[in-house]
Amino acid sequence: MTTTDAPRRTRPETATARAGSRVLRAASAVERAAFAVAAGALVTMTLLMVVEIAMRYFIASPIGWNFGFIQDYLLPGYFFLALAYTVRTGAHVTIDVVYQRCPAPVRAAMTVIARVLMLGLSALLLWAGLLTTHDAWSSRDIPPPGGAELSIPTWTWHVLVPVGAALLTVRLVCDLAARRDVRRDDEKGDDA
């Protein structure tokens, strides 16, 4: 069957686990904050487009920079900032036909392998994103003023990728660590 990935909630039992759970809570709080910014980006995108239509029709003076701003900042912003959160809350479609027919230990192994592979991808994304951001930073790439794009250094949007990848990497590490340390009860949807 196809379902969405179920969220995990941990129940701390030891002192180390308590410390661990503080880390997990902190990670979740940062994820929620990033998610709130992502929500802001979505709302801003909607309103910006409506304003653009209004400006064009009523005063024949389009905004101009909205196209580049949506493309460079709002779309990547809402995706990368929300990515870790959506992984935690299980918004991503998985295929469960085989999984559901497997005994518990095999399921656990599958989950760990899946998380490790995702962690590998996330770490690569983080590394590549840092390289790109560093390039843009060190060569001081900036759209010249007076063009259609806002004249803001381009590292400010390149950095959205490594920020999102960093959040995702922390999330996956937390998931893996939590799995090792603590017994898990079967999960309920995490609120946000």
Partner: peptide, 23 residues
Amino acid sequence: VVGVLQSAPAAAVSSYSLSPIPL
């Protein structure tokens, strides 16, 4: 791998034409 991952994520997501999807 790193070369592609340097441009693919932003290129895939930052396409104006994708914005109708969330909207």
